[in-house]
Write a protein that binds this DNA or RNA. Structure first.
Length: 625
RNA sequence: GGAGGCGUGGUGUAGCCGGUCAAACAUACGUGCCUGUCACGCACGAGAUCGCGGGUUCAAAUCCCGUCGCCUCCGCCA
């Protein structure tokens, strides 16, 4: 017991710590009948005089020779244990042996500290525990990084030793926050009559959407389950079943590239309700988030949330998930250039394009190198070019100055709302792409110019997304949300006409919850009528037979009395991330994958044995690793 | 798939317009001293062939090429 065997064992190179730290004198004790009476972080002045038994980890040891202080830590916090020979010879000799992260039980007496010894930085700082007996329950190797609140250790190292990383209070607090948020969600939805029902994770691969994770099946060689990308179809079946109000906190799997706020497996709060329209979903969600924020963070959210259509969001913010914590909206300045002799812009206008503008307040004096960087960035975002106009006192500085007339410059200033001292960025081209470029520039500038207020939460409903979108790869129209999303009633009335002339303009009864520019939830009112579903399938280019093949079970179910229904699904991890104020989703997941999609802790994904492949009827083509 | 950034003792960094660098600093680690510390302090000690491979050169942590890993973003994510 208690060996401190280093990884290099066997190499012949013995690290000193592996020997000296164990010393012959160190004997581990069993827990026996010893039981904890208090948690470390809970002790207060009122506890002074009490005899206590604490259990925890030695976070720090301050050895003053004949006086040893120990910071004893458990999930509730840290308390100082003091030990000296005159108080207890046993405790003192044990304290001399202690090292970082040893596991100990401390029997002792809570004493009020002298005023000059109080540590105001600690909730337990007014007291300390005088050790009477110290039981060393386990030793510990020296941790590969510091177990302290602020770490700058490499994230992959943290992930490899995630159990140590989680020992840090910010991480423990995130885990607790998550637990409380999940509980709040369950409590709230349950109180409104929602039933939590589990749906399969192993299911059938569907052609739409993200790439599937695939599960080979021994009993059906050559066939595969897909891990569910969402419980979408099943929750709709539950509506047909008459469940009426359903929710689930479930895991979803999507095999796509990762991001700071995206993991290949993630948790969703999935909700569906029958005989409801948008307003019922909206108020449910506002109530749910309001309750959760209040219970977990003690913060009252302003409800109802503001609403904005997709079209408006793109026009004003260049994105379908605007961060409305700051202004800096996009302006259409096309008319300022009507009849311009600036060839590049004139060409765009002739083709029916637009000119969009973004005002960077007070940035007219931006150095040329930075302005050039902005132009490059805009190109990186897909713009053909970026016209920068620096409105200085009495002059306008711009690389395109000689192509532009004074009146054009005045009109741009007027239409964009720019004032002297501002830098105006203009992009010419197709309407939506221009807005999207400027939308990204807006976020970049908002961040670098410090325009985004910290600590504020700006919720927003974005509604009426397009029903269809064009797939860039295939050039075909696809469902933007999923193929069971209802069109808005007005557009359904003239559905045939729109399907012929302007498919992209058909609006869906779909909606997102956006918080500070992050998509938190997404949902829709579904199609429950066969005739409507057929129309949508038709515009998607699916005939009866193809639709049957893909979604047959759902379509069949819908023939047995599907109620009108709709719902929404939250990205739980993102929700918690926002509540915790974390930078990445990984900070609120106990055991996340790194951004390359591997689990550093278990070294998964990994190869499997030849025999297992054999059994599954699989052959691997890539060179073995 | 694309762009950018990073990779040096356990950890975090410096060095990186080539030589005096078998590499500095902090911290962690070990030993000793220390009775009021709380990031304790002081002293001493151990610890890295600078991600990997190749090239240029009299000489490479440093320059070049390739490669691997990681992080962020774009594409992608109904």
């Amino acid at each position: 017991m208690g060996e401190r065997i280093e990884q290099s064992s066997g190499s012949g190179k013995i690290k000193r710590s592996s020997e000296l730290r164990t010393e012959t004198r160190l004997e581990l004790e069993d827990l026996g009948d010893l039981r904890r009476t208090h948690y470390c972080g809970e002790l207060r002045v009122e506890d002074a005089g009490k005899s206590v038994v604490l259990m925890g980890w030695v976070r720090r040891r301050r050895d003053l020779g004949e006086l040893i202080f120990i910071d004893l830590a458990d999930r509730t916090g840290i308390v100082q244990v003091v030990s000296s020979r005159d108080r207890s010879a046993q405790a003192f000799s044990a304290a001399e042996l202690l090292r970082s992260e040893y596991v100990v039980a401390v029997e002792g007496k809570v004493t009020k500290r002298l005023p000059e010894n109080v540590n105001p930085a600690l909730p337990t700082g007014e007291i300390e525990v005088e050790a009477v007996r110290i039981h060393i329950l386990n030793t510990a190797k020296t941790p590969p990084f510091y177990i302290q609140d602020n770490t700058d250790a490499d994230e992959n190292l943290r992930l490899k030793y995630r159990y140590l990383d989680l020992r840090r209070y910010p991480m423990l607090r995130n885990l607790e926050l998550r637990h409380r948020a999940v509980k709040a969600v369950r409590d709230y939805l349950s109180s409104l009559g929602f039933w939590e029902i589990e749906t399969p994770m192993m299911t059938r691969s569907t052609p739409e959407g993200a790439r599937d994770y695939v599960v080979p099946v021994r009993t059906a060689p050559g066939k595969f389950f897909a891990l569910a990308q969402s419980p979408q179809l099943f929750k709709q079946l539950l509506m047909v079943a008459g469940v009426d109000k359903y929710f689930q906190i479930n895991r979803c799997f999507r095999d796509e590239d990762l991001r700071a706020d995206r993991q290949p497996e993630f948790t969703q709060i999935d909700i569906e309700m029958s005989f409801a329209g948008e307003e019922e979903v909206f108020s449910l969600v506002e109530g749910l988030l309001g309750y959760t924020w209040k219970t977990v963070l003690g913060v009252t959210l302003p409800v109802p949330f503001p609403r904005m259509t997709y079209r408006e969001a793109v026009a004003r913010y260049g994105t379908d998930k605007p961060d409305i914590r700051f202004g800096m909206e996009i302006h259409d300045v096309t008319e300022a250039f009507r009849g311009t002799s600036f060839k590049v812009v004139a060409d765009v206008l002739r083709r029916g394009g637009r000119v969009k503008a973004l005002v960077a307040p007070g940035q007219a004096g931006m150095p040329r190198s930075q302005v050039d960087a902005l132009v490059e960035r805009a190109k990186g975002y897909g713009a053909k070019g970026l016209i920068t106009l620096a409105y200085l006192d009495g002059e306008v500085r711009s690389p395109a100055r000689k192509f532009l007339s004074d009146s054009e410059l005045d009109r741009v200033r007027e239409m964009s709302g720019a004032v002297t001292g501002d830098l105006v960025l203009c992009v010419a081209g197709e309407d939506v792409p221009c807005c999207e470029v400027l939308g990204k520039m807006r976020l970049d500038l908002g961040r670098t110019l410090g325009m985004i207020p910290r600590g504020s939460s700006a919720f927003l409903w974005v509604t009426e997304f397009p029903l269809l979108k064009i797939n860039e790869d295939t050039g075909e129209w696809e469902a933007a949300h999923h193929p069971f999303t209802s069109p808005v009633p007005e557009d359904l009335e003239r559905f045939e006409e729109l399907a012929r002339t302007d498919r992209g303009a058909i609006r869906a009864r779909s909606y997102d919850v956006v918080l500070n520019g992050v998509e938190l939830a997404s949902g829709s009112i579904r199609i429950h009528r066969r005739d409507v579903q057929e129309k949508v399938f038709r515009v998607l280019g699916l005939n009866e037979e193809e639709a049957r093949k893909r979604f047959g079970f759902l379509l069949e179910a819908f023939e047995y009395g599907a109620p009108p229904h709709g719902g929404i699904a939250f990205g739980m991890d993102r929700l918690i991330m926002m509540m915790a104020g974390a930078e990445t989703i990984r900070e609120v997941i106990a055991f996340p994958k790194n951004s390359s999609g591997t689990c550093v802790l278990t070294d998964a994904p990994a190869s499997i044995d030849r025999e297992k492949l054999e059994e599954l009827g699989l052959e691997v083509k890539v060179p073995h690793s």
